[in-house]
Simulated scan of single mutants.
Amino acid sequence: MPTPWTLLAIPVSLALLGLSTAVSQAHPATATNALVTLLTTRGKAPAAALLAHDSTGSGSTPTGTDHARAESDYGPGTTEYAQAGTGISRADHFRAGSITKTFIATVILQLAAEHRLSLSDTVEQHLPGLVHGAGNDGRALTLRSLLTHTSGLYDFTALTGGTIPVSPTEAVRMAITHPPADRGRYSYSNTNYVLLGLVIEQVTGNSYATEAERRILAPLRLTGTSFPGSRTTLPSPHGRAYATDGSDVTDLDPRVAGAAGELVTTLTDLDRFYSALLGGELLSPRWLREMLDTRTAHGSYGMGLFPVKLPCGTTVWGHNGRISGSYVRTAATVDGRHVLTFRVNTSEIADPGLEPALLAAEFCPRTS
């Protein structure tokens, strides 16, 4: 459940990563394949996998048998890159960590569109008495501030390490024993989205999982995606997941994250979800503009999404997710027509330069 890390001021090129000139000038599919392999070598992940879809007609598509196989499985425009390493496969279920936040934000914005809540509502209006103490005051915090990480609330996972299962109210009570950061300043906190999960339950009478299943998973037929609650095992098929020390952490109680990072999903489902969301299938144009508005967070974050401006000038939108044994990243063009998801089966990538280079290889035009 990481703090989103932007690339706005980081010029990235494949050459900086030590790739040969031939690779850096290759067809995008070739360059991206090389980078997926680097996730397991320089990135020190046991295994990595990536799935991209581009319906613009201008992105990377492999040739020959790989292209034919990808189209037969996922439809025209789908690029399936080779997995690197062993232990995971394309169809595996995995934990998506903070990518859960995009689903939660979508449900909140749908409820706002239905006039069942307002983004200017205070936390106190929906959860009276819960946020109070050590300088924290739910009367001064709006739902907008939770969505954009500008509430100043302390991140409860700084206390649990993301490894101790807690209930939503326990998570909040842990957080409010610490004074808040400056309100109005962007400060990423998992506590914000745990509170939004409680707001969904208060407004609808259903859990955030039930509402997300009804509003998102079922309409989009995301059959590989679930909110496991307290279930510690992954659905089949799945590979193994490893902590940075090499220990097997495949079985995990998702209550370590709750509404901030509980989701289990697949590469295919994440590509489909972000494409549908940015393509306007889940929110009207008005509410999608709200979601993409980063002014409240001073350019760092919208609502469950954040932008990254690549060296070529293209801006992609999406989220990353880190939970014990899994790191995931999805990025897409603002229209949702070109989307990429990659994952590794460990908690982090050893070389942080690989992620921006991979995004540039996929979304920036090939240079000769």
Rank of each mutant, 00 (worst) to 15 (best):
P4Q: 03
L7S: 06
L7K: 00
A9N: 13
S13L: 06
S13A: 14
L17F: 00
T21I: 00
A34M: 11
L35V: 10
L35C: 06
L39A: 02
T41E: 14
P46L: 04
P46N: 04
A48R: 03
A49N: 09
L50V: 12
L51P: 02
G64K: 03
R69K: 12
G75K: 00
T78S: 14
T79Y: 04
Y81V: 00
T86I: 02
T86P: 00
S89Y: 09
A96W: 02
A96R: 01
S98N: 06
V107G: 03
L111Y: 04
L111T: 03
A112C: 05
E114W: 09
R116G: 05
L119M: 10
V123M: 02
H132I: 12
G133C: 11
G135D: 12
A140C: 08
T142W: 04
S145E: 15
T148A: 08
H149Y: 13
D155T: 07
D155A: 11
T157H: 05
T157I: 14
T157R: 12
L159V: 15
I164W: 09
I164C: 01
V166R: 13
S167Q: 07
P168L: 01
E170H: 12
R173I: 00
H178E: 12
R183D: 01
R185V: 15
L195N: 05
V199M: 10
I200L: 10
Q202A: 15
V203R: 06
G205C: 07
N206V: 00
E211V: 15
I216N: 02
P219E: 06
L220M: 05
R221L: 12
T233C: 05
P235I: 09
S236C: 00
P237Y: 04
P237E: 09
P237G: 10
H238I: 14
G239N: 03
D245T: 10
V249H: 01
D251A: 15
D251E: 15
L252I: 13
D253V: 07
V256F: 13
V256T: 13
G261I: 08
V264E: 09
V264R: 13
T265H: 07
R272D: 00
R272N: 00
Y274G: 01
L277Y: 01
G279A: 02
E281T: 02
R289L: 11
D293F: 06
R295E: 14
R295P: 09
T296H: 13
A297L: 05
G302A: 06
M303T: 12
F306N: 03
P307K: 02
L310V: 11
T314M: 13
G318T: 10
S326T: 14
Y327D: 13
R329Q: 14
A331K: 09
G336P: 08
H338D: 14
H338C: 08
H338Y: 11
V344A: 02
T346P: 02
L354N: 01
E355N: 10
P356M: 03
L358S: 02
A360C: 05
C364V: 06
